[in-house]
Structure formats: C-alpha cells, structure tokens
Design a protein around this nucleic acid. Structure first.
Lengths: 221, 221
DNA sequence: TTCGTTGTTGAACGATCGTACAACAAGCCT
DNA sequence: AGGCTTGTTGTACGATCGTTCAACAACGAA
C-alpha cells in the first residue's frame, strides 16, 4: 500500500524527486533567492548554502549555473539595478505628458514601494559596501547607473525646455548630480530611521529643489 | 656569542618579547586597526586575525579587551562617528562669527579630507550595511547621529535668525533633513565615482540649497 | 523501450572563521 | 630579590565557508 497519491501506478517510482528547469529560469530563481537572503539577513546571510536553501535546491547546483559566488552576486546586483531603473522608467509614461507631472510620477515611484522599503535599501547598502573591492560590482554599476542618471537628466532637460524663455541657464550636469544626491540621501536617511520623516515629505523636498532650480539661476559659482 | 645587541648583559634575557600597555590604550589601538582593515579590504577583511595582525598583537588579545567581535565593531563605529562629529564641530568655530561663514566652514570640512576620502566613505557604507541586523550598531548610531543632526540644526537656526525680518517661515526639521540628505547623497555619489564632480561643486550645491531656502518660503505643501 | 544529454544531488575537501583557555611573562609592589 | 597581578601569547576546537566532483536521475530523442 505504499502507492504514492500523486500518480496512479503507471510508473514504478513515485513523483520525481526534483524538477529539471531551463538554465535561464533556474538562474533567475537563484538570483531572486540571493536578493531575498540579502533582505532577510544582510551581508551575513549571503552564503551559498543559505541561497541554495532559499531557492529550494541543493548546494552544488549554484556552481553549475554560476562559475563562482562573485558572479552570482554580480548577476543579482545587475538584476536589482535593472528592476529599479525599469520600474521607474515604466512609472513615468503613465503620468500626463507635462514634464512637471512626469517628474512627480518619477518621484512618487522612487519614494514608494517597493523602492522605499527599508529591506530594499538595505540591499543597496550591502552592494555599495562591496563596490570598492569588487571589480565585477564596479562594472555592473557603471553599466546600470548610466541609465538611471540619463533618465533623470532627460526629465530635467524637458522640464527646463518647458519653462520657456524665462528659463535660467542651468548646468544640467550639476543639476542632475544634485537631484540624484538629494534623492539618494533621503532614501538612505529614511532607511536608517523611517520614523524621522514621511515619504510625502521627501517628495516635497525634491520638488521644492527642482522648483528653486527653475525659479532662479542657481548661484553655482 | 649569542648576546643580544640591544642590551649589554645585565639581564639574562634579551629585550622583552612584547610590551604591556594600559587597557585603554590597547583598546584604542585595536579600534584603529579595525578601521584600517575596513579601509583596506572592506567587509571581507574584517576578521579577528586580520585585525590582530594589523594591530601587531596576537589573536587572543582581542577577546581580552572586547567580549566578542560585535562589541569591537560597535566600538569602532562609535569612534568613527565621534571623530567625524568632533572634527566638524572643531572646524566651525575657526570660521568668522557669521552664520553664513560658519556653515561654509562646515561644508568645507565635510567635503575635504579626511571625511571625503573614498576609503572613509567606504567604511561608512560597510557600517550602514550592518545597521539593520545589528542592535549594537543601531544603538551607537542613535547616540552619535543625534549630535550630527543637532549641529546642523543649530547652524540652520542661526542662519535663519540672521536672515532678519524677511526670513520666511521654514520648517527647521525638514530643512535639516533635506540638507543632511543632500550632503550624504553627494558624499555617496562622489565615493562611488570621484571623477563625476569636484568637491567644490558639491559645496556649491549645498550652499545654493541653503540660499534658496532663505530666499523664498519653500513650497513644501 | 532504450539511450544519451545534462540539470541536479550530496558528500567531501581544505581553508578560514570566532571563541575559549591554559600557560607565559612584563612590570609594579614590597 | 621574590611574589603577584594581569596583559599577552599560542594553540586548539567546532562551525561554517566556497568549491569540487563523482554519481544520480529527469526527460526528450531515437
């Protein structure tokens, strides 16, 4: 009576002990598991065994899909970056065509889930901590961050163009740097102490910054 | 002829194999070694053996002065915080009494060595990465960060007071949050990519932010 | 049904980790 | 000079780390 309940009796053995999957899909599962481990236990929980357990596979499988741990982490970092950038890029076109509304949509997306989640930001911080000593992370950062800054630059440029003839001469490069810094800094602050201010206040601060940028030629000299 | 060259012959043994030190001094040496290891090798190089080697002592000595690794790291974090805050506090009084000049001195100190050193910022990021999962780090952060924010708040308050009767009604709390975020964000950006802008530009961005704060009531609603 | 491909397992390896502890010795006191 | 305190050493232990690899098995092809 040791018949497995899943299948009648056509095969001698019960249901398969594991399911084979396409490399691409398994790779993605391992990447997701890596990020999940990072969220739950930070840098400490970033071990091959913990990742394998989180993904529900055996330890050895990771090295079948990734040559080593660093490559897995770099792949996870790449995916994490692209999810953020693509998410923000997707949020912008949903807004009205007005450059002002587009920026607001961008800010709203930046300061709401899943981007503002403390766990999410904690993952970023761990990646940043690896940055200086991991050439792989550096390479992924270069290729990903570029898209983010460009997106922000484009929005600022359109905003400036729409401001019309009274538009002051703004250093677009510096403006993008400043807005990015303000954004990232508010992210970081909120992560370290979510009680200190509300997301809406962060959005207001960023909008006020842009308003002041357009109102007057910033004294950047 | 096996006479040691250091001492004539008054004692049978050569010079002492190690030097005893007061607990307080040895503790400080271990804390310095911890930070040095963090600078050189990041989170990876943060092992008891690496720290002991950096300090020039044996492995076991650490556990004689610190109950465990976490306490050592927390002590290093506390020291790192206090050096920053005290350094900034010391830079302010050297400037002219004008609130504007005091803020400028503060910004100059923030965006110059040793605070702006990429290694220094990398150390911060590693500490931040531990924050969420280490109650010890959280405790140290609370007790240290408070002084930093208070220093910044005081400067903004004096700046506002000096602006005179035309001073707009500024939410001091939000202003401090915003300036802190801009500062930290620029720190972070410069650390990840020092070539993207010059420290002087970061200072200019912060000053422009404060200028705009005083010029007009920020539309924070 | 049988075979071959290959995704998957699980054990094993050497290295390194944090911690504990007994033995040693430097330096001060008497 | 001898004793005592205690800062310091060095080893050892068990746990866990990343990686390797031979064996297994799922599943499509023949």
């Amino acid at each position: 009576m040791a018949v497995n309940a899943a299948r009648p009796a056509a095969r001698p053995a019960a249901r398969p002990r594991y399911e084979r999957q396409l490399p691409e899909q398994r790779r993605q599962e391992l990447i997701d598991a890596t990020i999940e481990c990072l969220k739950r236990h930070g840098h400490e929980g970033l071990s091959m065994r913990a990742i394998a357990a989180q993904a529900g596979v055996s330890l050895g499988l990771i090295n079948h899909h990734f040559p080593n741990k660093d490559e897995l982490i770099a792949a996870a970092y790449r995916h994490f970056n692209s999810v953020l950038v693509e998410g923000l890029k997707a949020a912008v076109p949903k807004a009205p065509a007005s450059p002002r509304a587009r920026l607001q949509a961008f800010l709203r997306a930046s300061f709401s889930r899943p981007n503002l989640d403390p766990e999410t930001l904690a993952v970023w911080v761990v990646f940043w901590g690896m940055y200086r000593h991991s050439p792989l992370i550096q390479g992924v950062h270069r290729e990903s961050y570029q898209g983010y800054v460009q997106l922000l630059k484009d929005m600022l440029a359109q905003l400036l163009k729409a401001a019309g003839p009274r538009a002051p001469a703004v250093d677009l490069r510096l403006a993008a740097i400043g807005l990015t810094a303000l954004l990232d800094g508010l992210w970081l602050e909120w992560c370290l102490e979510p009680a200190s201010f509300r997301p809406a206040e962060a959005i207001a601060l960023c909008e006020a910054w842009v308003d002041n940028l357009l109102r007057r030629p910033a004294t950047l000299e």
